[in-house]
C-alpha cells in the first residue's frame, strides 16, 4: 500500500499546505509519493523531493496542467492514483475542485476534509458545520481523500531525498479554458496558516472602518479574516471569509471583533488554541467559545488594545 499526495503549488513553489497531507499520510502508510502536476514545475518537484519520508515524486509537466483545470488534472490523478491504496490532497479550493472528479472517474466515493485517521480504512470528519464528528469506513480499493490542513501539523520541508520520475502522457480537454485570475495581493501572512488571526464582522460598519482590523492585525503580525456578514456587506473581500463555506483556520490566537458567532462562522475557527471575542452584545454566541471575552465597543477597545501593545 502506498499513498499518493497531489501537491498544491503555483508552478514555482510547493505550497506549505501540502505538508499537512504528508503528516496525515504517515499515519496510513510508510510509502509516500507526491504527484506534481503543472507546467514548468521542476522547481516544485525539487522542493517536494526534499520533504522527509517521501520516497518518490511523480512529475507531470505539461502546458495542459498550467492552470490546474479539473478537466485536465482529474483524469491524470485517476490514471496514476488507481495504482495506489490512497490518494490525498489538502482541502484547498483546488483540491476540492479536482479530487471528487478524479474519484468518480475511478468509480470510488471520495471522503472530504478528514480531521482524524483511525486506521487505513477508517477516518473522522466533521459534518453539519462541524457540530458533529463522523467516523466512517470505506471499502473502496483506492481511498480518495481531502485532508483538513489545520487538523494535521505540517511535515518538515528539508532532509528528504526522493527520486523524481516523469509521467509523460497527458490529458487535455478542449471543453474548458482558463480566462483570468484576480489574485488579492497582501503582505500579511496567509490566512490558513497564520499563527494569529484577527477577524472583523458586520459591526465594523463600513469598508473604511474595516481598515481598523488591518491596522490592528499589522501590529500583531496577524492575518485578517472576516465573517460572512462583513464580506456580503462589501467590507472585506470574499477570500477572507472564515467559516463553513470559507476558510477553516486554527491559529494560536483568534481575535473576533464585532462578530456574533453564528454556527457557520464557528465551524471555521473553533479549533483555534485561544479565542478572544470583542463584542458589544454580552449575549453574543461568540462568548460561549471565547477563552477571553471583552464586552464593549470595538471602536474604543481596538485603539486601547493597540496602545497597550
Amino acid at each position: 500500500m502506498t499513498v499518493l499526495i497531489l501537491a498544491e503549488h503555483d508552478n514555482l513553489s510547493l505550497k506549505p499546505v501540502t505538508l499537512s497531507s504528508v503528516t496525515a499520510a504517515k499515519l496510513v502508510d510508510d510509502e509516500i509519493h507526491i504527484l506534481v502536476a503543472g507546467s514548468n514545475c521542476k522547481s516544485v518537484a525539487d522542493q517536494a523531493a526534499a520533504v522527509p519520508d517521501v520516497t518518490e515524486i511523480v512529475i507531470a509537466d505539461h502546458p495542459a496542467y498550467k492552470d490546474f483545470l479539473a478537466e485536465n488534472v482529474a483524469p491524470l490523478v485517476a490514471k496514476i492514483g488507481s495504482n495506489y491504496s490512497h490518494v490525498f490532497a489538502t482541502s484547498t479550493t483546488n483540491a476540492k475542485n479536482i479530487l471528487p472528479r478524479a474519484a468518480a472517474l475511478m468509480d470510488v466515493q471520495a471522503i472530504s476534509d478528514i480531521s482524524g485517521i483511525v486506521d487505513n480504512e477508517t477516518f473522522e470528519r466533521p459534518i453539519y458545520a462541524g457540530s458533529m464528528i463522523a467516523t466512517i469506513t470505506s471499502g473502496d480499493s483506492t481511498k480518495v481523500i481531502t485532508v483538513r490542513g489545520t487538523a494535521f501539523d505540517g511535515a518538515s520541508e528539508t532532509g528528504g531525498g526522493a527520486t523524481i520520475t516523469p509521467f509523460t502522457s497527458s490529458f487535455e480537454e478542449a471543453s474548458s479554458e482558463f480566462i483570468s485570475e484576480e489574485v488579492i495581493k497582501s503582505d500579511r501572512p496567509e490566512l490558513a496558516g497564520a499563527k494569529v488571526v484577527v477577524s472583523g464582522g458586520r459591526a465594523l460598519g463600513s469598508e473604511e472602518q474595516f481598515s481598523l482590523i488591518y491596522d490592528f492585525a499589522d501590529q500583531l503580525g496577524a492575518a485578517v479574516g472576516a465573517s460572512r456578514a462583513a464580506v456580503d456587506a462589501g467590507y472585506a473581500p470574499n477570500d477572507m471569509q472564515v467559516g463553513q463555506t470559507g476558510k477553516i483556520v486554527a491559529p494560536d490566537l483568534y481575535i473576533a471583533v464585532g462578530i456574533s458567532g453564528a454556527i457557520q462562522h464557528l465551524a471555521g475557527m473553533k479549533d483555534s488554541k485561544v479565542i478572544v471575542a470583542i463584542n458589544k452584545d454580552q449575549e453574543a454566541p461568540i462568548f460561549s467559545v471565547a477563552d477571553y471575552g471583552l464586552v464593549g465597543d470595538l471602536f474604543t477597545a481596538l485603539p486601547e488594545f493597540e496602545a497597550a501593545l
Binding site: 477508517t122 463522523a134 470505506s138 471499502g139 477571553y292 471575552g293
Partner: peptide, 20 residues
C-alpha cells in the same frame, strides 16, 4: 453506499472562558 457511518459524536467542548 460505498462507505459506512460507524458513529457520530460531539466535538470536544471548549472550556467556558472569562469575561474581562
Amino acid at each position: 453506499p460505498r462507505t459506512q457511518l460507524l458513529s457520530v459524536k460531539l466535538p470536544p467542548e471548549r472550556k467556558a472562558g472569562v469575561v474581562l
